[in-house]
Design a protein around this nucleic acid. Structure first.
Length: 357
DNA sequence: TCTGGGGTCCTAGGACCC
DNA sequence: TCTGGGGTCCTAGGACCC
């Protein structure tokens, strides 16, 4: 909660209480599939790859019934099949989910236009509540609006900033509303490991543990200069702020402008012939170039990614100068970058175009 | 556990210039 | 002559998120 002064339509100044709401759809991909195949309700549903659990790939979303049996996002499909042989495995249907996602965001925007979209199934929005203290009522209205519009349930986190609201949501799942406030931040999170926080993963948690920081509370109390020396001038101080639950970024409802566009493929069988790898790079580069040109964007750099067998990744890139919209220029930059790799057996190739602002 | 695909941002080292 | 310091760009990789 924080106080904000805003102008009312009649020109008077109003003091309001500003809250950030984080809205997150529950088991989004699995819920969408159950919605269009109601006979799947109550079954362990696993969405991932092309729906064939004997192939290379990982789980995108598992239903709660599947999670109870040890399968979640990121689980290899082959592992999921061993754990739940009778699960319903479905392919990722991007286009369909994008359509549903648009409907969810539309529903949110009917309450206020200022919505910051984080992905297919997540968004922040601001609530200025002049009456003081009831953001839960707004949260419940949001849940009803989304349910009416799409048939999907969501959870809502409430707090003073994005970081705190985002974390609050996990306490509200499924289909609930949860508020953390500055006062309860340490009560609820102080004893947890730092990787419970948004933006801190296992690698950083391990490095923090090496300097004796194993809880959120210790991170908040850590010396900023020491963190800066260890993690860099931007990341170090940011880590301390995250520990303390501070987030200086405002909810940003500006339209999304992409910074890069890439395509990549993991092969079901490793590619051993280098000429086959080269052909795949050429195909991917043409796809990427086509899509970038369709969006009317200028490419400033092309990066090729190769994942060698067994699982070792390298990247090489080429600047495109001057920035270009020509597919042939993009493709030849990709080919030049590709020439820097050593020929060896490959399991993945990718091509990514970085775009001018 | 045999490890997807689509992204974003940050860091560090080297080149190069003044 | 054998050597400073700052700034910027490029590059590769790391880490994280959904």
């Amino acid at each position: 909660m924080c106080r904000q002064v805003v102008s009312a339509p009649d020109g008077r100044l109003l003091v309001v209480t500003r809250w950030v709401l984080h809205v997150d759809l529950d088991q989004f991909l699995a819920a969408v599939e159950v919605l269009r195949h109601p006979e799947l309700a109550g079954l362990p549903v696993v969405v991932g790859g092309d729906g064939d659990p004997t192939k290379r790939g990982v789980v995108s979303t598992a239903s709660y019934e599947a999670r109870e049996r040890g399968v979640g996002s990121g689980t290899p499909l082959r592992t999921a099949r061993k754990r739940i042989p009778d699960a319903v495995f479905l392919p990722v249907d991007r286009e369909h989910y994008e359509g549903v996602s648009d409907a969810v965001i539309q529903a949110l925007r009917t309450v206020t236009p200022e919505v910051e979209v984080l992905g297919w199934d997540e968004a922040f929005r601001v609530v200025d509540d002049p009456s003081g203290d009831d953001p839960e009522a707004v949260a419940r209205a949001v849940q009803e609006r989304v349910l009416e519009a799409t048939g999907l349930h969501c959870s809502v986190g409430i707090d003073r900033n994005r970081l705190q609201a985002k974390i609050a949501t996990s306490y509200g799942k499924p289909a609930g509303v949860h508020r953390i406030t500055g006062a309860t931040w340490f009560e609820q999170l102080g004893h947890l490991p730092p990787d419970a926080l948004w933006g801190i993963g296992s690698k950083t948690a391990k490095k923090l543990a090496e300097v004796g920081i194993t809880t959120v509370r210790q991170l908040a109390d850590a010396d900023v200069d020491a963190l800066a020396a260890r993690f860099g001038p931007t990341t170090g101080p940011w880590l301390q702020r995250v520990g303390a639950g501070r987030d200086t970024a405002r909810v940003d409802s500006a339209p999304y402008v992409r910074r890069s566009l890439g395509r990549e493929i993991t092969f079901q069988q490793d590619l051993v012939e280098w000429a086959d790898v080269a052909r795949e790079v050429d195909l991917l580069a043409r796809r990427v170039a086509g899509e970038v040109v369709d969006e009317g964007r200028h490419v400033v750099r092309v990066v090729v990614k190769v994942r060698y067998v067994p699982f070792f990744t390298e990247t090489h890139g080429r600047v495109v100068a001057p920035p270009s919209t020509e597919p042939d220029v993009v493709v030849s930059a990709a080919i030049e970058a590709f020439e820097r790799f050593e020929p060896r057996a490959v399991r993945l190739v990718g091509v990514r175009a970085e775009l001018a602002r």
